[in-house]
Amino acid sequence: MTRRRMLKSGAGILLALGGMLLVGWWQVDGPGAADPDIARPLTITDMSFALTDHEGTSVGPETLVGKPSMVFFGFTYCPDVCPTTLSDISAWLEDFGPEAEGMNVIFITVDPERDTVEAMADYVSYFHPSVRGWTGPGDEIARSADGFRVRYEKIPTDSGDYTMNHTASVFLFDETGRFSGTIDYHEPREFAVPKIRQALEIPSEEPV
């Protein structure tokens, strides 16, 4: 239960330093700025994993090189955070229109037990057509999550089922696979869109 312990110690640190961190965050970083305490994903080319996309094609880190990428981890049994994020992503993509067509947009499941290739195909069909769903064996999902520095944990529910706690940030990479930024859950559009613009290397009207 290493993950559980890590999550708990994270909460402990937050309690101990809570006030200080909060003040620091507002003063130094402000809303929407990248949190230096959160581990950055590796460069795509330093990752190693083998998954299957929702059309049954073998995919891995190499699939993400050559185009800018947007990657999000979640699960299809997620009632709130995942559909909200995928809807946000779909709306951002619509904002960009053809400019974002060359982007990899990947939804990787943290619940491969229930999220089969078929389940992923069914699920992603409801969102922007650019969204690809990736799944695979549990150990390969774990290797991909390690590369992106994503955490997840299975949590039993009162209804006799289980849900997944998971990192809900959207990761951005440029076309060489270099990490370019994170969009946090519920980050306002005015922060999200310039970050995507940066990953796409579209010159911004204002300095980012």
Binding site: L7, I13, V81, Y152, T163, A168, S169, Y185
Partner: peptide
Amino acid sequence: AMMSEFHRTTTDDQGVSSM
């Protein structure tokens, strides 16, 4: 639904989301 309740979604300092 056979069970329904109000849930709060929180995201911790590491970006991990839970309800």
